Computed example of a mutant assay.
Amino acid sequence: MANGKKVVQTEAAPKALGPYSQAIVANGLVFCAGQIPLDPATGNLVEGGIAEQTHQVLKNLQAVLKQAGSGLDRAVKTTVFLKSMDSFVAMNEVYGRPEYFGSAAPARSTVEVARLPRDVMVEIEVVALA
């Protein structure tokens, strides 16, 4: 642990696409970098629309949080970045499934952005309890 922070890295989630960590654990919190819908085994974008992409993003976040000793059920804040707010309802249906956050959903912001890495439809970042 350097400078009171621990770098989290797992092969069960896509490798970072740039000079950043998948997550950092500091002061009892896990700060996850935004995940996009890449299959960690192939590095390819998952097939399908916003529902499939949201599911893959959440699976990737679960893997990073597991490596950090946490989980989505310990998430306190998420930020969802959408290519189009027209996808909000379909994203929200997947995001709201109890297998992800349990009965206590974290605080959340959702914003539409001009463009996301690899031209994906959704990216989600998480802050969770360690």
Rank of each mutant, 00 (worst) to 15 (best):
A2D: 11
N3S: 12
V8E: 09
Q9F: 08
Q9A: 07
K15Y: 06
G18V: 06
G18R: 00
P19K: 01
Y20A: 06
I24A: 01
A26W: 04
N27W: 02
F31I: 05
C32M: 06
C32W: 10
G34R: 15
Q35V: 09
Q35Y: 02
Q35W: 04
Q35A: 14
I36G: 14
I36Y: 08
P37S: 07
D39V: 04
D39R: 04
P40R: 05
P40A: 02
T42V: 08
N44D: 10
V46C: 10
I50D: 01
V57Q: 10
L58C: 04
N60W: 14
A63M: 14
V64Y: 11
L65E: 02
Q67R: 05
S70K: 04
S70Q: 08
G71A: 09
A75D: 00
K77I: 09
T78P: 07
T79F: 10
F81W: 07
L82C: 09
L82G: 02
M85F: 13
M91E: 15
E93W: 05
Y95I: 13
R97Y: 08
R97F: 05
E99D: 15
E99K: 11
P106N: 01
A107Y: 14
A107S: 12
R108D: 02
S109A: 07
S109N: 11
T110K: 04
V111T: 13
V113F: 03
R118A: 09
D119K: 00
V126W: 13
A130I: 01
